[in-house]
Design a protein around this nucleic acid. Structure first.
Lengths: 348, 348
DNA sequence: GGTCAGCTCGTTAGCGCTAACATTCCCGCG
DNA sequence: CGCGGGAATGTTAGCGCTAACGAGCTGACC
């Protein structure tokens, strides 16, 4: 076996080297190795060099599990999320991960199969067992939010994208303001009123967007049509859009997300209703595809990445200082005007 | 402080209960508690009951960090991924997470800022420090793949979605077959040849799709036009699509992903080229929006979820049996015909 | 020159758990 | 009635690391 030429790490592969191996090679105690690794100031430069060299030679890799056991800190954060396939959650997760990486933390994801109380509770529980230092929840859902109220006990937790109004720290986009500017934009264009395709009612975002839409219409003295309820999918937008497209009174629609707006666009196209000539539509999210819809979609941009970053920072602040997270951070939403909206057609 | 009424867990909150606390309350040793938790057969039913009751009363939560330290198994898997914002990687990640959950594993994500050797090496290194039991890499990129060859040493690793041709286990969709069926579909429709908008050349998928397209044309004796190179974004599809739309000879285009196909669709629309009347287009991926494009997009479906599941299973198999993962699993790709493709227009 | 502060390092004791062995008890058997 | 053996439990020794303390050495100061 001993070829004699193989002097690299891989030769004495019986067991990964540990601190005392490094110490032995460097002629110091394992504690000094620990000091070097943790950047203690009380180590002579030459000792440090020797230790570093020994680490290099052995290919030493600190065992963070052992460290976590003794410090009580794992430097990992849990993220529970519903559908990470969707653009919003995926982007938020991405932002969180980037920020965590910079802060020296790892992200453990626990995605939810169903959106109900027990699955959220269960996910949080699993993460705590795993020893995470804090938890982020991307589940802008009513029941999920409720569940958090009964869970967050001994580990810092912040809700992202939406959450209960109190009891838990929430970092979210200003959904209401976004919906207001979407609706107002349509009103300003001269439309008598604005129809609405909403998301599922148990999503907090659905309700906020609907609320913003409704109050804007009311404030303008406009008639408030019955909102149509979708499920965020393009298919729902298409199905609901077929109804809307048949009704000539409908000249402006605020759709609760871009995917459903896409479905509506197709329905309008098939029904021969010109967008924006006869029908104006505004979406929500500003997914990367939105500028290339036919026509390019006017929508409300949510800065998911920023939301991820901010929520992570809030969580980290709590973890590191022990102060409760400041609740209610709102990330602004921005109206992006493209070509799917235009002046109201001359009425009859 | 002692109210006397608060007898629940939250009262003696100095420190989370540990095994010996449970043992003390149940009148057994901590080891017996361990046996109960790990389902050892050598525990009397009544003892088990007592222990369970004590755990319940104390709100005991096993410390998996301590367990990981002693067993050397953390029950966590690392996933390194490039852009989890994209539909493909996001879906794959989702599939992985679901499968991992079922198997009792956690997923730690490490996303890459840049696609180069060092960032991949670095991510893998970080994950190993963290003590993951295995690593999954979603980075269908040439350099990234190369990096893996020099990294995978003492922890099982499998590449997902694409990877180097050997040296590392790879679970991927059959890109070539997908590209072949896309191109053949167009040829069968009577098009003389098929143009191609490819992804960035350093993506393995780009090359495989291009290869499938090229060989199909060659086998059919068709002329092979110079492929246009995009970057997966709708914008690239649009920009490149403007060129293509101007050229009346172009009657069929195979686009390397759906997002670029969307851009092409818009460019064609603006140029007044009817799809599929004058121009047929096939995408790749089958993103959820594809059926609602104008017109609904014919595309190649990749089962990302399946790929995630399979790659996880392969990894787990290696971890649990020690056998090297079987290389080269291919997930089939499926042609989904919708309305963006049609017979070739009568030539001049 | 003695003292004491401060730097550098080593020694010891766990963190909470599991693995391995030791112990107790009960049963059946010759 | 003693003894082997297995089932149920307890005891001990770490896993690899950090925290806390202690020891040796240097240098400055009175």
């Amino acid at each position: 076996m001993e070829t004699g030429e193989d002097i690299t790490v891989s030769s004495r592969r019986a067991r990964a080297p540990v601190m005392s191996d490094v110490g032995r090679l460097a002629g110091v105690s394992h504690q000094t190795v620990s000091r070097v690794i943790n950047g203690s100031p009380h180590v002579r430069p030459e000792t440090r060099t020797k230790v570093l060299a020994a680490m290099e030679e052995l290919g030493y890799r600190p065992n963070s599990v052992a460290r976590a056991l003794v410090t009580g800190r794992s430097k990992t954060l849990g993220v529970v999320s519903f559908d990470t396939t969707l653009y919003g959650p995926a982007s938020t997760l991405f932002g969180i991960e980037q920020a965590a990486h910079e802060a020296g933390y790892f992200i453990i994801v626990a995605s939810l199969k169903a959106l109900n109380r027990s699955s959220v509770t269960d996910a949080v529980e699993r993460l705590r067992r795993q020893g995470v230092d804090g938890i982020l929840v991307i589940a802008p859902h009513e029941e999920a939010g409720d569940a958090l109220l009964h869970t967050h006990a001994d580990v810092p937790l912040v809700a992202v994208e939406a959450g209960p109004d109190d009891g838990v720290a929430v970092v979210a986009v200003d959904q209401i303001a976004g919906a207001v500017s979407a609706t107002q934009h349509l009103l300003d264009l001269g439309h008598e009123t604005v129809w609405h395709i909403s998301g599922p009612p148990n999503f907090i975002e659905s309700r906020k967007r609907q609320e913003g839409w409704r109050t804007t219409l009311q404030n303008a003295g406009a008639n408030v049509p019955e909102p149509l309820v979708g499920d965020w999918s393009p298919r729902a937008g298409y199905d609901l859009g077929q109804h809307l497209s048949r009704d000539p009174k409908v000249t402006a629609v605020f759709v609760a997300n871009d995917q459903m707006a896409l479905g509506l666009l197709r329905a309008a196209n098939e029904a021969g209703r010109a967008v924006p000539g006869e029908l104006s539509v505004v979406g929500f999210d500003d997914i990367p595809e939105a500028p290339y819809f036919l026509p390019p979609l006017t929508t409300i941009r949510q800065d998911f990445n920023e939301m991820g970053t901010r929520s992570l920072r809030a969580l980290l602040h709590t973890i590191e200082t022990g102060e409760p997270p400041s609740s209610g951070t709102l990330v602004p939403a921005e109206l992006v005007i493209r070509s799917s909206t235009g002046p109201a057609p001359r009425s009859h």
